[in-house]
């Protein structure tokens, strides 16, 4: 287990995301999302389509629309919504006393 403390919940915009920076060698940036129910999700910040930065998309429900060509990605699973196919890596998230933690490999 490698739980990384990321930030306080309130550092994340509601229905938005911020970026956890990692080098390309370490696997690349992680997008950390927060929806209006205060559920937090973490996905690799790369759209399964052409690598668009998902952190920059519009968040709605439990989904995000990629800013480049508008694919829709499930925040829970990282999977593209049908009929598009593809999946981006997801990371486990926990919230503990207002702090957001992401499990990194």
């Amino acid at each position: 287990m490698n739980w990384q403390y990321v930030c306080k919940l309130d550092d994340l915009p509601v229905l938005g995301a911020r970026v956890l920076e990692r080098s390309e060698n370490a696997g690349g940036n992680v997008a950390v999302f927060r929806n209006d129910q205060d559920v937090v999700f973490a996905l690799l910040d790369k759209c399964p389509h052409k690598g668009g930065p998902l952190s920059q998309g519009i968040v709605f429900g439990e989904r995000v629309a990629c800013p480049l060509h508008n694919w829709t990605i499930e925040l829970k699973s990282g999977a593209a919504v049908a009929p598009d196919v593809g999946c981006t890596a997801r990371f486990a998230v926990k919230i503990d006393s207002g702090g957001v933690f992401v499990e990194l490999p």
């Binding site: 990321v6 911020r18 956890l20 920076e21 990692r22 370490a26 696997g27």
Partner: peptide
Amino acid sequence: PIKSIAADVVAA
């Protein structure tokens, strides 16, 4: 970025 993860931390 909210946080930058240095390569060595990841390797740990």
